[in-house]
Amino acid sequence: MNHVKGVSAVLIAMFLILSIGCASTSSREGTGEYVDDSVITAKVKAAIFNEPSLKLFEINVETFKGVVQLSGFVSSRADIYKAVEVAQGVGGVKSVKNGMAVK
């Protein structure tokens, strides 16, 4: 009986350690958040590519905890505004940071 309690205690301790190891911090994403951010990044890239006025530009997309960072070069301020607007329209996006520049 004591052996069963000991094994149970070890299993519970291992579960808690693994749970804490996969948790997120302010500077590091948890496993679930990383997957969510990857999906958001893919959706934003697809939305930008499907926008005819933005298709020709190299716009980089990165996501951290639902915050999308856009970078790259476009030909006008209107293209920047359009890219930000398209990114904001994607589900799961909390906010968009603009790091794009006009060539």
Rank of each mutant, 00 (worst) to 15 (best):
I12C: 11
K103H: 04
G32S: 11
F73Y: 09
I12A: 15
S75E: 15
P52I: 05
V61A: 10
A87I: 04
N60K: 15
I48T: 05
D37I: 07
I59R: 14
E33N: 06
T25Y: 01
E62H: 13
V84D: 07
F57W: 08
A47Q: 00
R28M: 15
A13N: 06
S76C: 04
N60H: 14
G72F: 00
E33S: 14
K65G: 06
A78C: 02
F73V: 10
M1Q: 13
D36I: 06
V96Q: 03
F49Q: 15
V7F: 13
R28N: 09
G89M: 01
A101V: 08
C22H: 10
K94E: 07
S38F: 06
I17W: 05
A23W: 01
G21L: 12
E62R: 13
G89Y: 00
V90P: 06
V74S: 01
A78T: 13
G32E: 14
K97Q: 12
K94W: 00
K65R: 12
F49R: 13
S38E: 08
V10Q: 07
K65V: 05
T41H: 01
V39E: 07
D36H: 08
G32M: 08
I20V: 10
V67H: 15
M100N: 06
F64M: 02
I20H: 03
T31L: 14
N98P: 03
K45P: 07
N2L: 11
V90C: 00
S27K: 10
V44E: 11
E58Y: 08
A47H: 07
M14W: 09
V68D: 06
L18S: 13
I59D: 05
A9P: 01
I40L: 10
S71H: 02
K43C: 12
V4I: 12
A23S: 15
A9W: 03
A87P: 03
E51Q: 14
G30R: 04
K94S: 09
L56D: 14
V96R: 00
Q69F: 08
D79L: 09
V93R: 01
D79H: 15
N98Y: 03
V68Y: 06
T41I: 07
C22K: 05
L16S: 12
G91F: 07
V96T: 03
G91H: 08
M14A: 15
A101K: 11
V102M: 02
N98A: 01
L18Q: 10
S75Y: 05
A46P: 07
V7Q: 09
K94F: 01
V35L: 11
A42Q: 11
G89E: 00
V35D: 04
G72S: 04
G21E: 09
V39H: 08
E85I: 02
S38W: 05
T41W: 07
A23D: 06
K45R: 14
E29F: 01
Q88S: 11
Q69Y: 10
I59Y: 02
G66K: 05
I12E: 08
V86M: 04
F49L: 13
V102A: 04
S27L: 08
T41S: 13
Q69A: 10
